[in-house]
């Protein structure tokens, strides 16, 4: 069953009286969408800034390629702007754009030839101090000599072996922290399907990454 459509995503809390000199809080998403539908590109620019990182991250984790993620994320926002008149407001703009980006990415992945190019330089230095990483690469891990780039490569390789829907579920839930309900709305399926895909994808990844999980 499709969940009840959520209310429009608010950018910030209801504005209290701002302190003197402080910038006003950003307007509501619905206001921005309304202005953008009337051709206000400034309003649409604000919408893009609100969601660009999450949209890009999802596409990147699906494609494992920065250039492709850049193109696809931009095209998703462009297509969303062109289709604004058809946006009826039944779901949040965020979810709607997400769907566009996801569909574009899945179509792209199905069409492209197999490419193994992955952006291995994207792992920033802060990961070395990530407590999860420290806990993972510990005396419990057989391969203690593994370095970050190898781990990233293995992880991305394993992700690319999943089918697009399974990879998407893992990306949205385990990488980006989306809830089952949010994922179901983005993917246009029920929560049971999300859970079963997630379970299956985790089993697959567990088998592929068994050397790094013991």
């Amino acid at each position: 069953m499709i969940m009840a459509e959520p209310t429009a995503r608010k950018v910030s809390k209801e504005p209290d009286v701002p302190a003197a000199g402080s910038p006003p809080p950003p307007p509501d998403e619905a206001v921005l969408v309304s202005r953008a539908r009337q051709g206000d590109l400034g309003a649409y620019d604000e919408l893009v800034r609100l969601y660009q990182e999450r949209i890009y991250a999802t596409v990147y984790h699906m494609t494992a390629n920065h250039e492709d993620a850049n193109d696809l994320a931009q095209e998703a926002f462009i297509k969303a702007y062109q289709a604004l008149k058809s946006f009826k407001g039944g779901s949040s703009f965020y979810t709607w754009v997400y769907r566009i980006a996801v569909n574009k990415t899945i179509n792209f992945l199905k069409q492209r030839k197999h490419r193994t190019h992955m952006s291995l330089d994207d792992l920033d230095f802060n990961a070395e101090h990530d407590p999860d990483l420290v806990a993972l690469i510990s005396d419990k891990t057989p391969r203690r000599e593994i370095d970050l780039s190898e781990l990233q490569e293995k992880l991305n390789t394993a992700m690319q072996k999943l089918s697009e829907p399974h990879r998407l579920v893992v990306t949205l839930h385990d990488v980006q922290g989306s809830s089952h309900e949010e994922i179901a709305e983005i993917m246009g399926c029920n929560i049971g399907t999300v859970r079963s895909r997630l379970f299956y994808a985790r089993q697959q990844l567990q088998a592929l990454l068994s050397d790094y999980l013991k």
């Binding site: 990147y60 984790h61 994207d122 993972l136 990233q152 991305n156 893992v170 385990d174 980006q176």
Partner: peptide, 10 residues
């Protein structure tokens, strides 16, 4: 392990 992918940034 998957959460580490959050560190992959452009």
């Amino acid at each position: 392990l998957l959460a580490l992918k959050r560190h992959e940034q452009p």
